[in-house]
Amino acid sequence: MTEAVKGPASYFPSIEKKHGRPIAEWKELIRRSPLTKHMELVSWLKAEYGLGHGHANALVAHTLAEDGVK
């Protein structure tokens, strides 16, 4: 039996479907951005790429957590 994905990663299938980019590509964009603060990155993804708040927040939260940023 497989466990359901929880947390920010639960948004990933719908992000890929709606916005047509793989999650790895979104994470790379976030990591290359000169911005470093969570909400700055969320606002940037929303303004620059048209992501909704939930999708942008999930991508940023997951990426920063992977990178050990709190």
Rank of each mutant, 00 (worst) to 15 (best):
L51S: 04
V60Q: 01
Y49C: 05
L51E: 05
E40M: 08
G7C: 05
S33Y: 02
D67Q: 11
W44Y: 11
K17I: 05
H55M: 04
T36R: 12
H38Q: 08
A47L: 08
V42E: 02
E3D: 13
T36N: 14
K37R: 15
H55E: 14
K18W: 07
K18V: 13
V69T: 09
M39F: 12
K17F: 12
K37S: 14
F12E: 03
L41K: 05
E25I: 06
K6D: 09
S14A: 15
I15C: 02
S10F: 10
V60T: 00
T2G: 12
R32W: 07
Y11M: 14
L35R: 15
E16A: 14
H38V: 01
L64R: 06
I15A: 01
L59M: 05
Y49F: 14
V69D: 05
E16H: 11
Y11T: 11
A24M: 12
D67H: 03
V69A: 06
K46S: 12
G20V: 08
E48T: 13
S43Y: 05
K46N: 13
E25W: 11
P13F: 05
L51A: 10
H55I: 01
D67N: 08
N57L: 07
E40G: 15
M39K: 15
A58L: 00
E3Q: 15
A47Q: 14
P22S: 10
W26L: 03
G54I: 13
K37I: 07
K17L: 07
T36E: 15
S10I: 10
W26D: 03
Y11C: 09
P22C: 07
L64Q: 11
V60Y: 04
R31K: 12
K6L: 14
K6C: 10
P8Y: 04
S43N: 13
H55Q: 13
P13Y: 05
H55R: 04
H53Y: 15
K37P: 11
H55Y: 12
L59T: 02
L35N: 10
K17Q: 08
M39V: 11
L59Q: 02
H62K: 13
A58N: 00
G50C: 03
H62P: 01
